[in-house]
Amino acid sequence: MLIILGLVVAVAAVAAGVAGVAANTSDVNRLTSDFSVFDYHFAGTTGELFLIGILVGVVGGLGVGLVSAGAWRSTRRGLTTRRELRESRREMAAVQRDLAKTKEPVKKPVPTTTGKRESAWSVSRLLRKPDKSAAAAK
């Protein structure tokens, strides 16, 4: 329904534009002074000026339409990605629940204390440590 209404409005706008240009093309409707836009001097009839205004409006409308279409597409793509992420998380949670039911709980070894206590935060934890197996292979 909206498409048909949009087509009717577009046809009416084209008809009004053609009628406005045709009615204002005689010598009586000549512009009394010329004007310039981007260093282009225009001296014509009011009908020609109206036609140029219509063309500028159409180009502007197409630009706004392209921006809207791009934003809509980006929004739809983001929605699809978020939906897939939620679905993936649900699947992972279901798999983890199934694994928890079938597996026996793994007992973690009790750490032995050497008497030396490390601070909760230290730079050495953030630095990469050399691989012990590489040193043993030498």
Results as ranks from 00 to 15, higher is better:
residue 29 N to C: 13
residue 29 N to I: 09
residue 29 N to T: 15
residue 29 N to Q: 13
residue 30 R to Y: 13
residue 31 L to C: 02
residue 31 L to A: 04
residue 32 T to S: 15
residue 33 S to L: 07
residue 34 D to H: 11
residue 34 D to P: 03
residue 36 S to T: 01
residue 36 S to L: 01
residue 37 V to C: 01
residue 37 V to D: 01
residue 37 V to L: 04
residue 38 F to A: 11
residue 39 D to H: 05
residue 40 Y to I: 14
residue 41 H to I: 03
residue 42 F to A: 00
residue 42 F to H: 04
residue 42 F to I: 04
residue 43 A to L: 10
residue 43 A to E: 09
residue 44 G to S: 06
residue 45 T to Y: 02
residue 45 T to L: 06
residue 46 T to F: 12
residue 47 G to C: 03
residue 47 G to H: 00
residue 48 E to P: 00
residue 53 G to C: 02
residue 54 I to N: 02
residue 56 V to A: 09
residue 58 V to D: 02
residue 58 V to I: 04
residue 60 G to N: 01
residue 60 G to P: 03
residue 61 G to H: 03
residue 62 L to A: 12
residue 62 L to E: 03
residue 62 L to P: 01
residue 64 V to G: 03
residue 65 G to C: 08
residue 66 L to Q: 00
residue 66 L to P: 02
residue 66 L to M: 05
residue 66 L to N: 04
residue 67 V to W: 01
residue 67 V to T: 01
residue 69 A to M: 06
residue 70 G to S: 09
residue 70 G to F: 08
residue 71 A to T: 04
residue 74 S to A: 09
residue 75 T to C: 10
residue 77 R to P: 00
residue 77 R to F: 06
residue 79 L to R: 08
residue 80 T to G: 08
residue 81 T to E: 10
residue 81 T to Q: 10
residue 84 E to L: 12
residue 87 E to G: 07
residue 88 S to M: 09
residue 90 R to C: 01
residue 94 A to D: 05
residue 96 Q to W: 05
residue 100 A to V: 07
residue 100 A to C: 05
residue 100 A to S: 05
residue 101 K to G: 06
residue 103 K to H: 13
residue 103 K to V: 14
residue 104 E to P: 06
residue 105 P to S: 14
residue 105 P to F: 15
residue 107 K to E: 12
residue 107 K to D: 06
residue 108 K to W: 12
residue 112 T to Y: 13
residue 112 T to S: 14
residue 116 K to H: 10
residue 117 R to N: 11
residue 118 E to Q: 13
residue 122 S to E: 01
residue 126 L to Y: 14
residue 128 R to D: 11
residue 129 K to V: 15
residue 129 K to I: 11
residue 130 P to S: 13
residue 131 D to A: 08
residue 131 D to R: 13
residue 132 K to W: 15
residue 133 S to W: 15
